[in-house]
Nucleic acid binder design. Structure first.
Lengths: 222, 222
DNA sequence: GCATTATTTAATGCATACGCAAATAAATGC
DNA sequence: GCATTTATTTGCGTATGCATTAAATAATGC
């Protein structure tokens, strides 16, 4: 069936998001509402609504008369984001382990891990990143807390922005999948403490790598 | 000076929030945009913008053609919210302890604790609740992560809704302030682990009490 | 009667218009 | 020249109207 026509508002949200991710709307740049409306070929109304939504998700900022500002991400911002992810995802891992999921329930998680292995073997960074996203979002889903899912979703969006930049400037994340497996096994065996601790270490490590990378390359923002 | 005139949009956000808290807009009820516009004596436009914002904060839900639905809070929702608060506030406590704040920096925290003591002595539940809010928000502020401040702020809003209902049906929170003092002392002495653990226990305890209370009183939602 | 289709109703999504206030430019006084 | 005032521009906040489409109701066929 022909996909249902998307509302202008929704379209605005998605297209603006994409343009931020792709860099077409550069971090730190300002844009008038009317400019964005022209860009998306719609009136200001749906643009305003989209901008309101994206503001609440931390992607941009409304500064009356100065335009809509695409929020830059500093290394400090990145550190904040990773800290939130660390806490909430670790909680999810803990809960997932307590939930007593069986092999079937954990299949998506296992698949994501395997896909990461394959991607690394093929040196396909994009595929790895996609599978990594899948692992983390599935983990959070298994945690069962919908508010955490929503918050982590928003924060992951921001991380994705930074990863585009940093992925190619760091070594292949070969070690990363050991962490994923540790978390996986802890969950499968119902060891909540280990699941939590493993994931916590995993995320803290990721944070350290990215923040160091950004600082080393003098990426004051992105 | 005469306070600056608030925009209709801002007014709508605040007034709608208040009406949700006060119960004037009951949880679970549906309201057309035009109805809310009439209620607030403004056009649909700023109401729509406010509703968009409040939706992203989890207070209500937009269901096209069915109206704006004030989201009810179930015991499960409450549990989710407390879990998020537990994780993020505990992280803040840990960081606050690491930050090496001196007596002056921690004054607001100490004051909040004293105020709670005074409120309990006077059996003034409203004053206690206010000081408790102050303690938690100051704690999170000291944690230094602005994203956590924002998330915790949103979640605390929801807790406040429930507390209105439950505050009078539970014993005076006399024990609660012991927890607060433990967190305070750990922060002052730079003991991050203790700060974290104390606060974690504090919040888990609060969660258990509220969830039990809601279930006991068959408050399926609120 | 019951199911299906046609008709009406009405809430929303969006475009548009307009007044106001802020920012900028121009003009005036010193 | 520089500061201060005045004029002008321009972006935003809000109101309003209309087209669209989902829901509700009536009508038709079987």
């Amino acid at each position: 069936m022909p996909d249902k026509p998307l509302s202008s508002s929704q379209r605005a949200i998605h297209e603006l998001r994409n343009k931020v991710f792709s860099g077409e709307l550069a971090a730190g740049s300002d844009h008038l509402e009317s400019e964005l409306a022209d860009l998306l070929d719609m009136s200001r109304t749906p643009v305003r609504e989209a901008v309101l939504t994206l503001e609440s998700q931390g992607l941009l900022e409304l500064r009356p008369r100065k335009g809509v500002r695409i929020l830059p991400l500093s290394p400090d911002d990145m550190a904040e984001i990773y800290d939130v992810l660390t806490e909430l995802e670790s909680h999810a891992a803990e809960r997932a382990a307590e939930a007593g999921y069986d092999e079937t329930d954990l299949k998506a998680l296992a698949t994501a891990i395997d896909d990461m292995d394959a991607a690394i073997a093929a040196s396909d960074l994009d595929a790895w990143a996609e599978a990594d996203d899948r692992f983390h979002s599935e983990l959070v889903r298994l945690g069962g807390n919908r508010r955490i899912q929503s918050i982590v979703g928003m924060m992951s969006d921001q991380v994705r922005r930074a990863r585009t930049m940093t992925l190619f400037m760091r070594p292949l994340p070969t070690k990363s999948n050991e962490d994923h497996r540790a978390v996986f096994h802890a969950i499968r065996s119902g060891d909540a403490d280990t699941a939590r601790d493993s994931h916590e270490k995993h995320r803290q490590h990721a944070k350290a790598i990215i923040v160091e990378l950004l600082n080393k390359h003098r990426l004051r923002f992105l």
